[in-house]
Simulated scan of single mutants.
Amino acid sequence: MTDRADDLSLPVYVPEEPRRAQPSASRGGQLPRLAPARLPNAAILFGPVVLVVLWELASTVGWISPKFLAAPSTALLTGFKLLVSGTLADHFLASARRAYLGLGIGVAVGVALALAAGLSRIGDASIDGLVQVKRAIPTLALIPLAILWLGIGETMKIALIASSVLIPVYINTHAALRGIDARYIELARSVRLSRAAFVREVALPGALPGFFTGLRLAVTTCWAALVVLEQINTTEGIGYLMNRARDYGQTDIIVVGLVIYAVLGLGSDLVVRLWERKALSYRKALAS
């Protein structure tokens, strides 16, 4: 006699595997984002605004002495007085003239050297090594020789700014030239483009992304070099204003000078970014 459990087809219990928690899907079947894809442009100011607010609070309660660092409100009032009196405008124009003259010369020389080294083996062999050597030597180390060769006036300052600026422009433009697709070069040979037409139609457009990357670095390098050079035998400029304020312990004027340098650097970078977006708009069209 068989057991009843053997005659009947009893269901066998099989424990279910624990289900893994699935992330909830948003509309359209896509996973929800943890953060917005792109923050608004004004979000970049969040960090600086918080820093200034904390700085002002610390100065108000007495944690930061005015002799050590002036409060933002004090520096703002001082800057307004200097602007109204015309003193700030004169020194600003002197600094801007040095900076942008050195920037223009450095960018022109950097692009010319990059084209010569990127489009010629002889140029690459004779130029690239020298630029890399200059890259390894800080601008401060060249000041004594520059003073002996060019004097201690404006020529020395503009020359050193230009020599600092050409490095990032050269390196990034040269790298972009070396990275041009070989198919474009073969196409230029097939249609028998002249040397000038090749540079105009293939080399320069191909080098534009690298050039703008180098230019963004160059504008910040330009102002960084100016900060140092305007401490040397100057009678006008933002650096001279800060140097004189240091002798009298006027930290509010020093803060005003630092803010001006920062605003000019960020403003120059913004102009380059807008120019880059307009000049390279064709890349978005091709991608779409």
Rank of each mutant, 00 (worst) to 15 (best):
T78S: 11
G257Q: 03
V191D: 02
G28L: 08
S26W: 13
R192N: 08
L241M: 15
S281K: 14
S95Y: 12
G123F: 10
I238S: 00
A218F: 08
D90K: 04
A114G: 09
R121C: 02
L286K: 04
M156P: 06
V84D: 00
P48D: 09
L77P: 00
A146Y: 08
G257M: 07
W63F: 14
I122M: 12
S281E: 09
L274W: 03
Y240L: 01
R283Y: 10
L51T: 11
A245D: 02
L77R: 13
N41I: 08
G110I: 02
L150M: 14
W149D: 02
L113I: 09
S281R: 15
G265K: 08
G239S: 01
Q30N: 06
T251R: 12
G214E: 08
V259F: 09
G129A: 09
L215Q: 09
R183N: 13
N243S: 14
V52M: 12
R19Y: 06
A35T: 12
V219E: 05
G151M: 08
F46P: 02
D90A: 13
I185E: 06
R216C: 03
V14E: 15
I161V: 15
D3Q: 13
L217Y: 09
L8D: 12
G129W: 11
I161G: 14
I260G: 02
Y261C: 01
L82D: 02
S24H: 07
S85N: 15
T78W: 03
N233Y: 06
A262I: 07
S59H: 07
I171F: 11
A287V: 06
A42D: 01
E276V: 06
G28S: 06
A117L: 01
V131I: 15
W149H: 00
V272E: 14
Y261P: 01
I167E: 00
I44Q: 12
A218S: 01
L51P: 03
S73M: 09
D7A: 04
L204S: 06
A146Q: 04
L76E: 05
R4D: 15
L177A: 06
R244W: 13
V263T: 11
A125F: 13
T234Q: 15
A285G: 04
A196K: 10
V169W: 11
F80N: 08
Y240V: 00
L266E: 04
I232Q: 11
A162F: 07
N233W: 02
L241R: 09
L57M: 12
A117Q: 00
T155A: 15
D7R: 04
Q231R: 06
G47Q: 10
V53Q: 03
H174R: 13
V49G: 00
L69P: 04
A279G: 04
L115R: 10
K81V: 10
V191P: 01
S95C: 07
H174Q: 11
Y170C: 04
H91S: 14
R4F: 14
S9Q: 11
A245P: 06
L77Y: 08
G210M: 11
I232N: 08
G104Y: 03
I152A: 15
P48V: 05
A108S: 10
I127D: 07
A159M: 10
